[in-house]
Design a protein around this nucleic acid. Structure first.
Lengths: 208, 208
DNA sequence: GAACTAATGCAACTTCAGTAGCAATAGCGT
DNA sequence: ACGCTATTGCTACTGAAGTTGCATTAGTTC
Protein backbone atom coordinates (compact mmCIF):
# COMPACT_ATOMS: atom_id res chain seq x y z
CA UNK A 1 0.00 0.00 0.00
CA UNK A 2 1.67 3.11 -1.25
CA UNK A 3 0.90 6.55 0.05
CA UNK A 4 -0.59 7.61 -3.27
CA UNK A 5 -3.07 4.77 -3.35
CA UNK A 6 -4.02 5.56 0.20
CA UNK A 7 -4.82 9.13 -0.68
CA UNK A 8 -6.68 8.00 -3.75
CA UNK A 9 -8.97 5.73 -1.79
CA UNK A 10 -9.49 8.49 0.70
CA UNK A 11 -10.90 10.74 -1.99
CA UNK A 12 -13.19 8.14 -3.50
CA UNK A 13 -16.27 6.39 -2.15
CA UNK A 14 -17.56 9.10 0.06
CA UNK A 15 -21.10 8.84 -1.27
CA UNK A 16 -23.98 7.91 0.96
CA UNK A 17 -22.23 8.92 4.13
CA UNK A 18 -23.84 11.40 6.41
CA UNK A 19 -20.51 12.62 7.63
CA UNK A 20 -17.80 11.96 5.07
CA UNK A 21 -15.21 13.73 7.15
CA UNK A 22 -11.55 12.97 7.30
CA UNK A 23 -11.72 10.49 10.10
CA UNK A 24 -14.38 8.27 8.58
CA UNK A 25 -12.50 8.02 5.32
CA UNK A 26 -9.26 7.50 7.21
CA UNK A 27 -10.55 4.54 9.18
CA UNK A 28 -12.04 3.04 6.05
CA UNK A 29 -8.74 3.30 4.23
CA UNK A 30 -6.85 1.79 7.13
CA UNK A 31 -9.29 -1.08 7.54
CA UNK A 32 -9.44 -1.94 3.85
CA UNK A 33 -5.66 -1.81 3.60
CA UNK A 34 -5.38 -4.12 6.58
CA UNK A 35 -7.93 -6.44 5.00
CA UNK A 36 -5.87 -6.70 1.83
CA UNK A 37 -2.70 -7.29 3.80
CA UNK A 38 -4.24 -9.98 5.99
CA UNK A 39 -5.79 -11.60 2.96
CA UNK A 40 -2.50 -11.72 1.12
CA UNK A 41 -0.66 -13.10 4.13
CA UNK A 42 -3.03 -15.63 5.60
CA UNK A 43 -5.76 -16.13 3.00
CA UNK A 44 -9.52 -16.05 3.30
CA UNK A 45 -9.76 -19.08 5.56
CA UNK A 46 -7.94 -17.34 8.40
CA UNK A 47 -9.29 -13.89 7.71
CA UNK A 48 -10.65 -12.56 10.99
CA UNK A 49 -12.10 -9.23 12.01
CA UNK A 50 -9.99 -9.11 15.13
CA UNK A 51 -6.74 -9.38 13.21
CA UNK A 52 -7.84 -6.76 10.71
CA UNK A 53 -8.90 -4.43 13.50
CA UNK A 54 -5.66 -4.88 15.37
CA UNK A 55 -3.58 -4.38 12.25
CA UNK A 56 -5.45 -1.26 11.17
CA UNK A 57 -5.49 0.29 14.63
CA UNK A 58 -9.28 0.55 14.45
CA UNK A 59 -11.36 -1.07 17.14
CA UNK A 60 -13.12 -4.28 16.18
CA UNK A 61 -16.50 -2.97 17.28
CA UNK A 62 -16.16 -0.23 14.69
CA UNK A 63 -15.44 -2.77 12.00
CA UNK A 64 -18.44 -4.86 12.96
CA UNK A 65 -20.65 -1.79 13.01
CA UNK A 66 -19.64 -0.41 9.63
CA UNK A 67 -19.10 -3.61 7.66
CA UNK A 68 -20.98 -6.24 9.59
CA UNK A 69 -18.19 -8.76 9.31
CA UNK A 70 -15.62 -10.22 6.98
CA UNK A 71 -18.06 -10.54 4.09
CA UNK A 72 -18.89 -6.87 4.13
CA UNK A 73 -15.23 -5.99 4.14
CA UNK A 74 -14.63 -8.14 1.08
CA UNK A 75 -17.55 -6.62 -0.77
CA UNK A 76 -16.23 -3.15 -0.06
CA UNK A 77 -12.72 -4.18 -1.07
CA UNK A 78 -14.00 -5.64 -4.33
CA UNK A 79 -15.89 -2.46 -5.12
CA UNK A 80 -12.73 -0.54 -4.42
CA UNK A 81 -10.68 -2.74 -6.71
CA UNK A 82 -13.18 -2.53 -9.57
CA UNK A 83 -13.64 1.21 -9.27
CA UNK A 84 -10.78 2.07 -11.57
CA UNK A 85 -11.32 2.30 -15.28
CA UNK A 86 -10.47 -0.77 -17.28
CA UNK A 87 -10.68 -1.41 -21.00
CA UNK A 88 -10.31 -4.64 -22.90
CA UNK A 89 -7.18 -5.17 -25.00
CA UNK A 90 -7.34 -4.57 -28.74
CA UNK A 91 -4.98 -6.83 -30.64
CA UNK A 92 -6.69 -6.78 -34.03
CA UNK A 93 -8.24 -10.24 -33.91
CA UNK A 94 -10.91 -11.78 -31.73
CA UNK A 95 -8.67 -14.70 -30.88
CA UNK A 96 -5.92 -12.32 -29.86
CA UNK A 97 -8.28 -10.25 -27.72
CA UNK A 98 -9.79 -13.22 -25.93
CA UNK A 99 -6.39 -14.79 -25.40
CA UNK A 100 -5.12 -11.56 -23.90
CA UNK A 101 -8.15 -11.32 -21.65
CA UNK A 102 -7.68 -14.89 -20.49
CA UNK A 103 -3.98 -14.38 -19.89
CA UNK A 104 -4.65 -11.28 -17.83
CA UNK A 105 -7.33 -13.11 -15.90
CA UNK A 106 -5.12 -16.06 -15.12
CA UNK A 107 -2.23 -13.83 -14.14
CA UNK A 108 -4.52 -11.90 -11.83
CA UNK A 109 -5.79 -14.97 -10.04
CA UNK A 110 -2.38 -16.61 -9.90
CA UNK A 111 -0.80 -13.62 -8.23
CA UNK A 112 -1.21 -14.06 -4.48
CA UNK A 113 -1.74 -10.35 -3.89
CA UNK A 114 -3.90 -9.27 -6.82
CA UNK A 115 -5.92 -12.47 -6.85
CA UNK A 116 -6.63 -12.61 -3.14
CA UNK A 117 -9.66 -10.33 -3.11
CA UNK A 118 -11.55 -11.81 -6.08
CA UNK A 119 -10.83 -15.33 -4.87
CA UNK A 120 -12.02 -14.48 -1.39
CA UNK A 121 -15.23 -12.91 -2.70
CA UNK A 122 -15.96 -15.97 -4.82
CA UNK A 123 -15.55 -18.03 -1.68
CA UNK A 124 -17.61 -15.65 0.43
CA UNK A 125 -20.42 -15.70 -2.13
CA UNK A 126 -21.22 -19.24 -0.98
CA UNK A 127 -22.23 -17.85 2.39
CA UNK A 128 -23.20 -14.24 1.86
CA UNK A 129 -25.86 -12.80 -0.40
CA UNK A 130 -24.10 -9.45 -0.37
CA UNK A 131 -20.94 -11.05 -1.70
CA UNK A 132 -22.97 -12.93 -4.29
CA UNK A 133 -24.61 -9.75 -5.51
CA UNK A 134 -21.30 -7.92 -5.59
CA UNK A 135 -19.76 -10.71 -7.62
CA UNK A 136 -22.57 -10.70 -10.15
CA UNK A 137 -22.37 -6.95 -10.57
CA UNK A 138 -18.61 -7.07 -10.88
CA UNK A 139 -18.55 -9.71 -13.59
CA UNK A 140 -21.49 -8.32 -15.53
CA UNK A 141 -19.59 -5.07 -15.72
CA UNK A 142 -16.44 -6.87 -16.74
CA UNK A 143 -18.13 -8.86 -19.49
CA UNK A 144 -19.83 -5.75 -20.78
CA UNK A 145 -16.48 -4.06 -21.14
CA UNK A 146 -14.96 -7.09 -22.85
CA UNK A 147 -17.83 -7.43 -25.28
CA UNK A 148 -16.42 -4.66 -27.47
CA UNK A 149 -13.86 -7.18 -28.69
CA UNK A 150 -16.71 -9.19 -30.19
CA UNK A 151 -18.34 -6.05 -31.56
CA UNK A 152 -15.13 -5.28 -33.40
CA UNK A 153 -15.04 -8.84 -34.73
CA UNK A 154 -18.59 -8.47 -36.03
CA UNK A 155 -17.62 -5.25 -37.80
CA UNK A 156 -14.67 -7.03 -39.37
CA UNK A 157 -17.02 -9.78 -40.54
CA UNK A 158 -15.19 -12.46 -38.55
CA UNK A 159 -18.28 -13.37 -36.55
CA UNK A 160 -21.98 -13.49 -37.49
CA UNK A 161 -23.99 -10.35 -36.81
CA UNK A 162 -26.24 -10.62 -33.78
CA UNK A 163 -23.66 -12.55 -31.80
CA UNK A 164 -23.95 -11.87 -28.06
CA UNK A 165 -20.57 -10.47 -27.08
CA UNK A 166 -20.89 -11.09 -23.37
CA UNK A 167 -21.77 -14.73 -24.05
CA UNK A 168 -18.61 -15.21 -26.06
CA UNK A 169 -16.54 -13.69 -23.30
CA UNK A 170 -18.22 -15.86 -20.68
CA UNK A 171 -17.52 -18.97 -22.74
CA UNK A 172 -13.92 -17.93 -23.17
CA UNK A 173 -13.16 -17.41 -19.50
CA UNK A 174 -15.36 -20.16 -18.06
CA UNK A 175 -12.89 -23.04 -18.54
CA UNK A 176 -10.24 -21.12 -16.63
CA UNK A 177 -12.51 -20.48 -13.68
CA UNK A 178 -13.58 -24.07 -13.86
CA UNK A 179 -10.05 -25.39 -13.55
CA UNK A 180 -9.16 -22.87 -10.87
CA UNK A 181 -12.10 -23.25 -8.51
CA UNK A 182 -14.22 -26.27 -9.45
CA UNK A 183 -12.11 -29.15 -10.69
CA UNK A 184 -9.06 -27.64 -8.97
CA UNK A 185 -6.69 -28.67 -11.73
CA UNK A 186 -3.47 -26.88 -12.65
CA UNK A 187 -3.93 -24.13 -15.23
CA UNK A 188 -1.35 -23.15 -17.84
CA UNK A 189 -0.89 -21.12 -20.99
CA UNK A 190 -2.20 -24.00 -23.08
CA UNK A 191 -5.54 -23.72 -21.31
CA UNK A 192 -5.59 -19.97 -21.88
CA UNK A 193 -5.21 -20.25 -25.64
CA UNK A 194 -7.40 -23.32 -26.00
CA UNK A 195 -10.30 -21.73 -24.16
CA UNK A 196 -10.07 -18.60 -26.30
CA UNK A 197 -9.82 -20.66 -29.49
CA UNK A 198 -12.88 -22.68 -28.52
CA UNK A 199 -14.91 -19.55 -27.91
CA UNK A 200 -13.87 -18.14 -31.28
CA UNK A 201 -14.72 -21.37 -33.08
CA UNK A 202 -18.15 -21.52 -31.44
CA UNK A 203 -18.80 -17.86 -32.18
CA UNK A 204 -17.87 -18.26 -35.85
CA UNK A 205 -20.19 -21.28 -36.00
CA UNK A 206 -23.01 -18.99 -34.90
CA UNK A 207 -23.68 -20.56 -31.53
CA UNK A 208 -24.03 -17.26 -29.68
CA UNK B 1 -32.41 -41.61 4.35
CA UNK B 2 -34.07 -44.90 3.66
CA UNK B 3 -33.24 -48.04 5.52
CA UNK B 4 -31.82 -49.66 2.40
CA UNK B 5 -29.36 -46.86 1.75
CA UNK B 6 -28.34 -46.99 5.37
CA UNK B 7 -27.54 -50.66 5.16
CA UNK B 8 -25.74 -50.09 1.89
CA UNK B 9 -23.45 -47.48 3.37
CA UNK B 10 -22.87 -49.73 6.33
CA UNK B 11 -21.50 -52.42 4.08
CA UNK B 12 -19.25 -50.16 2.07
CA UNK B 13 -16.19 -48.16 2.99
CA UNK B 14 -14.80 -50.42 5.61
CA UNK B 15 -11.31 -50.39 4.15
CA UNK B 16 -8.39 -49.03 6.11
CA UNK B 17 -10.07 -49.40 9.45
CA UNK B 18 -8.38 -51.35 12.16
CA UNK B 19 -11.68 -52.39 13.63
CA UNK B 20 -14.44 -52.25 11.07
CA UNK B 21 -16.97 -53.67 13.48
CA UNK B 22 -20.64 -52.96 13.54
CA UNK B 23 -20.47 -49.97 15.83
CA UNK B 24 -17.87 -48.06 13.85
CA UNK B 25 -19.85 -48.43 10.66
CA UNK B 26 -23.04 -47.56 12.50
CA UNK B 27 -21.73 -44.29 13.87
CA UNK B 28 -20.31 -43.40 10.48
CA UNK B 29 -23.65 -43.99 8.82
CA UNK B 30 -25.49 -41.97 11.45
CA UNK B 31 -23.05 -39.07 11.26
CA UNK B 32 -23.00 -38.90 7.47
CA UNK B 33 -26.77 -39.09 7.33
CA UNK B 34 -27.00 -36.28 9.84
CA UNK B 35 -24.50 -34.30 7.79
CA UNK B 36 -26.63 -34.60 4.66
CA UNK B 37 -29.76 -33.67 6.58
CA UNK B 38 -28.18 -30.63 8.20
CA UNK B 39 -26.71 -29.59 4.87
CA UNK B 40 -30.04 -29.81 3.11
CA UNK B 41 -31.81 -27.90 5.87
CA UNK B 42 -29.42 -25.15 6.80
CA UNK B 43 -26.77 -25.12 4.09
CA UNK B 44 -23.00 -25.15 4.31
CA UNK B 45 -22.72 -21.77 5.97
CA UNK B 46 -24.46 -22.97 9.12
CA UNK B 47 -23.11 -26.48 9.04
CA UNK B 48 -21.65 -27.18 12.48
CA UNK B 49 -20.16 -30.25 14.06
CA UNK B 50 -22.19 -29.80 17.21
CA UNK B 51 -25.50 -29.88 15.36
CA UNK B 52 -24.44 -32.91 13.36
CA UNK B 53 -23.31 -34.69 16.50
CA UNK B 54 -26.52 -33.90 18.33
CA UNK B 55 -28.66 -34.96 15.40
CA UNK B 56 -26.82 -38.21 14.89
CA UNK B 57 -26.68 -39.10 18.56
CA UNK B 58 -22.91 -39.40 18.35
CA UNK B 59 -20.77 -37.31 20.64
CA UNK B 60 -19.03 -34.34 19.08
CA UNK B 61 -15.63 -35.47 20.33
CA UNK B 62 -16.02 -38.61 18.28
CA UNK B 63 -16.81 -36.60 15.18
CA UNK B 64 -13.78 -34.35 15.70
CA UNK B 65 -11.56 -37.36 16.26
CA UNK B 66 -12.65 -39.33 13.21
CA UNK B 67 -13.25 -36.56 10.69
CA UNK B 68 -11.33 -33.62 12.08
CA UNK B 69 -14.16 -31.19 11.39
CA UNK B 70 -16.79 -30.19 8.87
CA UNK B 71 -14.41 -30.40 5.92
CA UNK B 72 -13.55 -34.01 6.61
CA UNK B 73 -17.22 -34.88 6.86
CA UNK B 74 -17.90 -33.33 3.49
CA UNK B 75 -15.01 -35.17 1.87
CA UNK B 76 -16.30 -38.44 3.24
CA UNK B 77 -19.84 -37.62 2.14
CA UNK B 78 -18.64 -36.78 -1.37
CA UNK B 79 -16.77 -40.05 -1.60
CA UNK B 80 -19.88 -41.81 -0.49
CA UNK B 81 -22.00 -40.07 -3.10
CA UNK B 82 -19.57 -40.78 -5.93
CA UNK B 83 -19.08 -44.42 -4.96
CA UNK B 84 -22.01 -45.68 -7.00
CA UNK B 85 -21.57 -46.58 -10.62
CA UNK B 86 -22.48 -43.92 -13.12
CA UNK B 87 -22.38 -43.98 -16.90
CA UNK B 88 -22.79 -41.16 -19.36
CA UNK B 89 -25.97 -41.02 -21.45
CA UNK B 90 -25.89 -42.29 -25.03
CA UNK B 91 -28.30 -40.41 -27.26
CA UNK B 92 -26.68 -41.10 -30.61
CA UNK B 93 -25.13 -37.67 -31.18
CA UNK B 94 -22.41 -35.77 -29.37
CA UNK B 95 -24.65 -32.74 -29.03
CA UNK B 96 -27.35 -34.89 -27.50
CA UNK B 97 -24.95 -36.53 -25.08
CA UNK B 98 -23.40 -33.28 -23.91
CA UNK B 99 -26.79 -31.64 -23.60
CA UNK B 100 -28.02 -34.54 -21.51
CA UNK B 101 -24.93 -34.37 -19.30
CA UNK B 102 -25.40 -30.65 -18.84
CA UNK B 103 -29.08 -31.03 -18.05
CA UNK B 104 -28.35 -33.70 -15.47
CA UNK B 105 -25.63 -31.54 -13.97
CA UNK B 106 -27.83 -28.50 -13.71
CA UNK B 107 -30.70 -30.50 -12.25
CA UNK B 108 -28.34 -31.99 -9.69
CA UNK B 109 -27.04 -28.65 -8.52
CA UNK B 110 -30.43 -27.00 -8.61
CA UNK B 111 -31.97 -29.64 -6.38
CA UNK B 112 -31.46 -28.53 -2.78
CA UNK B 113 -30.91 -32.07 -1.53
CA UNK B 114 -28.83 -33.66 -4.27
CA UNK B 115 -26.80 -30.52 -4.93
CA UNK B 116 -26.02 -29.71 -1.33
CA UNK B 117 -22.98 -31.96 -0.96
CA UNK B 118 -21.17 -31.03 -4.19
CA UNK B 119 -21.86 -27.36 -3.62
CA UNK B 120 -20.60 -27.57 -0.08
CA UNK B 121 -17.42 -29.35 -1.14
CA UNK B 122 -16.74 -26.72 -3.81
CA UNK B 123 -17.08 -24.12 -1.10
CA UNK B 124 -14.97 -26.07 1.37
CA UNK B 125 -12.22 -26.50 -1.21
CA UNK B 126 -11.40 -22.81 -0.77
CA UNK B 127 -10.30 -23.56 2.78
CA UNK B 128 -9.33 -27.19 2.90
CA UNK B 129 -6.71 -29.04 0.89
CA UNK B 130 -8.47 -32.31 1.58
CA UNK B 131 -11.68 -30.99 0.06
CA UNK B 132 -9.71 -29.61 -2.88
CA UNK B 133 -8.09 -32.99 -3.53
CA UNK B 134 -11.40 -34.79 -3.20
CA UNK B 135 -13.00 -32.42 -5.67
CA UNK B 136 -10.25 -32.90 -8.22
CA UNK B 137 -10.44 -36.66 -7.95
CA UNK B 138 -14.21 -36.60 -8.18
CA UNK B 139 -14.34 -34.50 -11.33
CA UNK B 140 -11.45 -36.20 -13.04
CA UNK B 141 -13.35 -39.45 -12.59
CA UNK B 142 -16.55 -37.87 -13.84
CA UNK B 143 -14.91 -36.41 -16.95
CA UNK B 144 -13.24 -39.69 -17.70
CA UNK B 145 -16.58 -41.43 -17.65
CA UNK B 146 -18.16 -38.75 -19.86
CA UNK B 147 -15.33 -38.87 -22.39
CA UNK B 148 -16.78 -42.00 -24.00
CA UNK B 149 -19.39 -39.75 -25.60
CA UNK B 150 -16.58 -38.05 -27.50
CA UNK B 151 -14.98 -41.38 -28.31
CA UNK B 152 -18.21 -42.48 -29.91
CA UNK B 153 -18.35 -39.21 -31.89
CA UNK B 154 -14.83 -39.83 -33.17
CA UNK B 155 -15.83 -43.31 -34.28
CA UNK B 156 -18.82 -41.84 -36.09
CA UNK B 157 -16.51 -39.37 -37.78
CA UNK B 158 -18.28 -36.37 -36.29
CA UNK B 159 -15.17 -35.10 -34.56
CA UNK B 160 -11.49 -35.16 -35.61
CA UNK B 161 -9.46 -38.13 -34.39
CA UNK B 162 -7.14 -37.31 -31.53
CA UNK B 163 -9.68 -35.04 -29.87
CA UNK B 164 -9.31 -35.03 -26.08
CA UNK B 165 -12.64 -36.22 -24.78
CA UNK B 166 -12.24 -34.93 -21.26
CA UNK B 167 -11.40 -31.48 -22.61
CA UNK B 168 -14.60 -31.37 -24.61
CA UNK B 169 -16.60 -32.35 -21.55
CA UNK B 170 -14.86 -29.74 -19.44
CA UNK B 171 -15.60 -27.07 -22.01
CA UNK B 172 -19.22 -28.16 -22.16
CA UNK B 173 -19.89 -28.00 -18.44
CA UNK B 174 -17.67 -25.04 -17.59
CA UNK B 175 -20.15 -22.29 -18.54
CA UNK B 176 -22.76 -23.81 -16.24
CA UNK B 177 -20.42 -23.90 -13.26
CA UNK B 178 -19.36 -20.42 -14.14
CA UNK B 179 -22.89 -19.06 -14.01
CA UNK B 180 -23.70 -21.04 -10.88
CA UNK B 181 -20.71 -20.24 -8.70
CA UNK B 182 -18.64 -17.46 -10.22
CA UNK B 183 -20.76 -14.83 -11.91
CA UNK B 184 -23.78 -16.01 -9.88
CA UNK B 185 -26.20 -15.49 -12.75
CA UNK B 186 -29.45 -17.41 -13.24
CA UNK B 187 -29.04 -20.58 -15.28
CA UNK B 188 -31.67 -22.01 -17.60
CA UNK B 189 -32.20 -24.59 -20.31
CA UNK B 190 -30.95 -22.16 -22.92
CA UNK B 191 -27.56 -22.12 -21.20
CA UNK B 192 -27.52 -25.91 -21.08
CA UNK B 193 -28.00 -26.32 -24.82
CA UNK B 194 -25.82 -23.36 -25.77
CA UNK B 195 -22.86 -24.60 -23.74
CA UNK B 196 -23.16 -28.06 -25.28
CA UNK B 197 -23.47 -26.64 -28.78
CA UNK B 198 -20.41 -24.48 -28.27
CA UNK B 199 -18.35 -27.44 -27.13
CA UNK B 200 -19.47 -29.44 -30.16
CA UNK B 201 -18.66 -26.60 -32.55
CA UNK B 202 -15.21 -26.16 -31.05
CA UNK B 203 -14.57 -29.90 -31.10
CA UNK B 204 -15.57 -30.17 -34.76
CA UNK B 205 -13.27 -27.25 -35.54
CA UNK B 206 -10.44 -29.30 -34.10
CA UNK B 207 -9.67 -27.14 -31.08
CA UNK B 208 -9.26 -30.05 -28.68
C1' DG C 1 -16.54 -66.89 27.23
C1' DA C 2 -12.82 -64.12 29.05
C1' DA C 3 -9.18 -60.91 28.40
C1' DC C 4 -7.66 -57.23 25.44
C1' DT C 5 -8.03 -52.95 23.09
C1' DA C 6 -10.06 -49.95 19.66
C1' DA C 7 -13.66 -46.79 19.66
C1' DT C 8 -16.84 -43.97 21.90
C1' DG C 9 -18.92 -41.20 25.75
C1' DC C 10 -18.37 -37.66 29.03
C1' DA C 11 -17.23 -33.37 31.49
C1' DA C 12 -14.41 -29.50 32.01
C1' DC C 13 -11.62 -26.17 29.95
C1' DT C 14 -9.59 -22.71 26.55
C1' DT C 15 -10.11 -19.73 22.89
C1' DC C 16 -12.31 -16.71 19.91
C1' DA C 17 -16.23 -14.58 17.21
C1' DG C 18 -19.69 -11.38 17.89
C1' DT C 19 -22.72 -8.15 20.81
C1' DA C 20 -24.36 -4.49 24.20
C1' DG C 21 -24.01 -0.38 26.83
C1' DC C 22 -21.74 3.54 27.80
C1' DA C 23 -17.83 6.97 27.52
C1' DA C 24 -14.85 9.75 24.61
C1' DT C 25 -13.66 12.11 20.38
C1' DA C 26 -13.72 14.65 16.20
C1' DG C 27 -16.12 16.56 12.16
C1' DC C 28 -19.95 19.72 10.96
C1' DG C 29 -22.96 23.80 11.15
C1' DT C 30 -23.96 28.02 13.34
C1' DA D 1 -15.22 29.86 18.61
C1' DC D 2 -18.98 26.92 20.36
C1' DG D 3 -22.34 23.49 20.68
C1' DC D 4 -24.28 19.37 18.31
C1' DT D 5 -24.04 14.73 16.91
C1' DA D 6 -22.16 11.14 14.10
C1' DT D 7 -18.58 8.13 14.74
C1' DT D 8 -15.31 5.70 17.22
C1' DG D 9 -13.13 3.60 21.51
C1' DC D 10 -13.59 0.78 25.42
C1' DT D 11 -15.01 -2.91 28.71
C1' DA D 12 -17.46 -6.71 29.72
C1' DC D 13 -20.35 -10.23 28.47
C1' DT D 14 -22.47 -14.26 25.79
C1' DG D 15 -22.17 -18.25 23.18
C1' DA D 16 -20.11 -21.47 20.35
C1' DA D 17 -15.97 -24.02 18.33
C1' DG D 18 -12.59 -27.04 19.38
C1' DT D 19 -9.36 -29.59 22.78
C1' DT D 20 -7.86 -32.59 26.67
C1' DG D 21 -7.87 -36.37 29.99
C1' DC D 22 -10.17 -39.99 31.71
C1' DA D 23 -14.06 -43.35 32.18
C1' DT D 24 -16.90 -46.56 29.65
C1' DT D 25 -18.51 -49.54 26.09
C1' DA D 26 -18.30 -52.87 22.57
C1' DG D 27 -15.53 -55.82 18.87
C1' DT D 28 -11.99 -58.79 18.38
C1' DT D 29 -9.10 -62.63 19.48
C1' DC D 30 -7.66 -66.50 21.77
Amino acid sequence: MTQTSTLLQQELHLNGMTRPGGRTARTRTAVLAATLAELAEHGYAELTVEQIAQRSGVHKTTVYRRWGGVDGLLVDALGDASAGEWTAPDTGTLLGDLTAINAELLAGFTDPVAGAVPTAVISAAFQSDAASDALRAFYLDRYERCAVAVTRAIERGDVPAGTDGTEVVRASVAPLFHRLFISREPVGDADVTRAAAAAVAAAKAGVY
